[in-house]
Computed example of a mutant assay.
Amino acid sequence: MDKQLGSPSYRPLYDQIKVLITQSLIGGEWRPGDMIPSEIDLAQRFKVSQGTVRKAIDSLATENILIRRQGKGTFVATHNQDDVKLRFLRLTAENGQKEILQNEFISCIKNKANVHIGKVLEMKAGATTIEVKRLLTFSGRPLIYDHIIVPAAPFKGLNRAKVEESNGSMYSMYESQFGVRMIRAEERIKAVAADAEVAKALGLKEGYPLLSIERVSFTYGDKPMEWRLGLCLTDDHHYMSELE
């Protein structure tokens, strides 16, 4: 979505309503999991037709910001739902077997953003960040070395206890503990060799081939809120992506 949410007047009418609904989400009027007002109520509120509101909601539903539930209404999407809790995690066992995902904590420290992190998170180089390192284990086996950096201000209080309690789903924890919901992510994928630190953590030889997934995740208004580097062991797993 466009980052300039304050002046929607130049947009098509349904897109203006989409921006206004998003502004209400950013402002906290409707929280993740909440039911939003009906199309009729929103049409009266914004003084447009019900069809225009429906088109705006359809667009937000396509972007996984809202969820329609037949016979119940339209709800703000949440990472706490089982079917979306891990929707950004694409590492899948070759045999298709479901696995138990858990954290193994490594570290959580305050740091300063370097030039690259400052650029991708739209913050000044040298600004305070919180840096988390952990292992993700699949049915007890460590498969992903996870390196996460977020801006410190929106995540004040993020610590070891919260990382361990998240039990795999940082996005669910961001949402419930800090009111930050990740809407979408951009990824860059390439093959790399494990350095000494990562090899030791994953129980591999230094130089072992890994899949590197560099991800930037965005909240409402297309604001980048998390940089993440996942270094994945793919001997008997693959990265699965669904294209539309």
Rank of each mutant, 00 (worst) to 15 (best):
D41P: 01
G168M: 10
R134Q: 11
I117D: 12
A77I: 11
W30M: 09
K133W: 10
K98A: 08
L66V: 10
C232T: 07
N80F: 13
F75Q: 04
N114T: 08
Q97E: 15
L66K: 09
S217I: 02
I149C: 08
E197V: 14
V132T: 03
N114S: 02
E63R: 10
V198R: 07
A43N: 08
K110F: 06
L42P: 12
L5E: 15
D236P: 14
G96N: 07
A185C: 01
C108L: 06
K3I: 14
P37I: 09
E104S: 14
G27I: 03
I189G: 07
K98H: 12
R45H: 12
E175C: 10
E39I: 03
S59L: 11
S172H: 13
E63N: 14
F218K: 13
D58P: 05
H147D: 12
I183Y: 08
W30N: 02
E131Y: 03
I106N: 02
E244N: 11
L25W: 04
V115Y: 05
I148Q: 06
S107A: 04
M123H: 12
I148A: 00
A185V: 04
L211F: 10
S212T: 11
N167L: 01
I26A: 10
V19K: 08
L121F: 02
R11M: 12
E242D: 11
S7H: 14
M170W: 13
E186T: 15
K72T: 08
H79S: 06
S217D: 04
A196Y: 07
D15N: 14
A196R: 09
L143T: 06
P32K: 05
A61W: 07
V198D: 01
Q70A: 14
G140A: 05
S7E: 14
S139R: 03
Q70V: 06
F105H: 02
D235Y: 03
T234F: 00
P209N: 11
L66C: 02
G157I: 01
A193P: 04
A161N: 15
V84C: 08
V150C: 02
M225R: 13
A125L: 00
R69F: 03
E131C: 13
V76C: 10
K200I: 12
L135P: 12
S169V: 07
Y208C: 12
K133G: 02
